[in-house]
Design a binder for these strands. Structure first.
Length: 422
RNA sequence: GGAGAGGUGGCCGAGUGGUCGAAGGCGCACGCCUGGAGAGCGUGUACUCGGUGAAAGCCGGGUCGAGGGUUCGAAUCCCUCCCUCUCCGCCA
């Protein structure tokens, strides 16, 4: 959520920044300004009326105490009349505030100046590419490798639940566990606190990180209890400190969590969803940082570098992509995607997305810190995958299958228990 | 799921219709005191919206789990919801 005071300070700049994203109804900004002016006028009216009414109420009390019944009754009648006008103004105010809120919630974040121009995926900028040897004897897509080894049972997963709910078996199951442990160990070594969060969240949490209102189609919803299955650990973890004021000297807070992720992925089809490319339930280790504003961009780079180190250790070829303004997620001010090269499909697959949300989430979350002067200020929030499993598994299978078994990278040996998967 | 008891400031805790944003204590900060520390003494110590101001501040509104309601006036009374605790039920 953008801050009213920022919009008020320079609406033209906000409009220009939103236009850079391809946000079409830029005139919303004008509507917001107008609505805000109305809101402030109404509040002044209401405050004035309430002030009078409070004074009147005190007067009534005083008169009663002094036993001046008649005067008290008269004052009481006046106060009652005053209250009617308060009600009218208050109702208008509530309407304006609700409308303003809706408008404000609709605005996406402002892209950081360093974010490249562009309208969509095609305009994203490859920042750097990391080479790594492909050991596969022939280009075989991972679903064929998985079938040959009997380690992912897509059909029975579909029977149990539906398409996009893979059933991992034998070495496939064990590899999940190994990767999760490896990623968590690395995150802990990098100074992240491990947390194990709830996988269902309430409405306030979903709103806090920006899944609601705009992405509610992407979440599984448990209507009986009004809870959402998390699409990423970002949601529960970033919400840990919702509505809190953190001691400034303790920042940054660096948190990591493993969680399953549940996504409806409405509207996906074709090659996009083949095998593990896009599934409804997958596993991921997430890193989340709550930082002081002045540090957040430095931290964004560090988090990206952390993801890269994991890929380097896994021996996977990858590239770092800076998302252009038009491809940025609603809440993000800047995002780097990490993409691995999957030799079997000859495709780049996104395995991580590292974003700085600046105050977009913290404004909704009311997540603040006390600055050096002792004043509450909004924090910057960041998160990134480190890493998402399915496409890592896909790349490992496609890049390291020698026709008989999958040669695992050395870092996984202690976690997996042996050097190859067969 | 059923019955009961509760939710007040960073923490403890008083407050059951009127000057209560809230006694008292603890903690914390600053000052005095001290060779230094402690004790002691003094002062200060929530968040938010609006107005005004260069700013410090000042003025006004709101907030005592959340949201509604009654009343001239609500932390205090009523309703709904959430959470915590105790007992029962169920259960990995």
């Amino acid at each position: 959520m953008l801050l009213l005071k920022d919009i008020r300070r320079d609406p033209q700049q906000v409009k220009a920044a939103l236009a850079r994203r391809g946000y079409a109804p830029v005139s919303r900004v004008d509507e917001i300004m107008e609505m805000d002016a109305r809101r402030r006028r109404l509040q002044q009216q209401r405050d004035e009326l309430l002030n009078q009414s409070k004074k009147m109420a005190a007067e009534v009390g005083r008169l009663f105490k002094q036993g001046e019944r008649e005067a008290a009754d008269k004052a009481r009648a006046e106060a009652a009349a005053l209250k009617e006008s308060v009600k009218t103004v208050e109702q208008q105010l509530a309407e304006v505030e609700a409308a303003l809120d809706t408008l404000l919630l609709d605005l996406p974040n402002i892209p950081h100046p360093s974010v490249p121009d562009g309208q969509g995926e095609a305009d994203n900028v490859v920042v750097r590419t990391h080479e790594a040897p492909v050991r596969a004897s022939a280009p075989v897509p991972h679903w064929e490798v998985a079938q040959a080894l009997g380690i992912i049972d897509f059909e029975r997963g579909a029977k149990i639940t539906g398409a996009g709910f893979p059933l991992y078996r034998k070495g496939g199951a064990r590899l999940q566990r190994a990767l999760i442990n490896f990623f968590l160990s690395e995150a802990i070594a990098a100074g992240f606190e491990e947390v194990w969060p709830p996988y269902l969240v309430n409405e306030a949490s979903a709103r806090g990180t920006g899944q609601l209102p705009d992405k509610d189609d992407q979440m599984y919803y448990v209507c009986k209890d009004n809870l959402y299955l998390i699409p990423t650990a970002e949601v529960p973890v970033t919400n840990i400190y919702r509505n809190e004021i953190l001691p400034g000297e303790r920042l940054p807070y660096k948190l990591t969590a493993y969680s399953p992720c549940f996504r409806r992925e409405a509207g996906s089809y074709g090659q996009e969803v083949r095998g593990l490319n896009r599934v409804h339930q997958f596993d991921k280790v997430e890193i989340v940082v709550i930082s002081r504003p002045e540090q957040s961009y430095e931290i964004l780079e560090e988090m990206t570098a952390h993801g890269e180190r994991l890929l380097q250790q896994l021996g996977l070829p990858y590239r770092v992509v800076s998302l252009c303004a038009g491809d940025l997620g609603t809440a993000s001010a800047k995002t780097y995607d990490l993409e691995v090269f999957a030799a079997g499909q000859q495709r780049w697959l996104e395995v991580s997305s590292v974003s700085n949300f600046e105050t977009f989430q913290s404004a909704r979350l009311k997540l603040r810190y006390r600055d050096d002067a002792g004043r509450p200020q909004l924090v910057h929030t960041l998160n990134g995958s480190a890493l998402a499993l399915p496409r890592i598994v896909a790349a490992l299978l496609e890049n390291n299958f020698n026709g008989e078994k999958v040669l695992l990278p050395e870092v996984l040996h202690p976690f997996y228990g042996q050097p190859f998967l067969q």
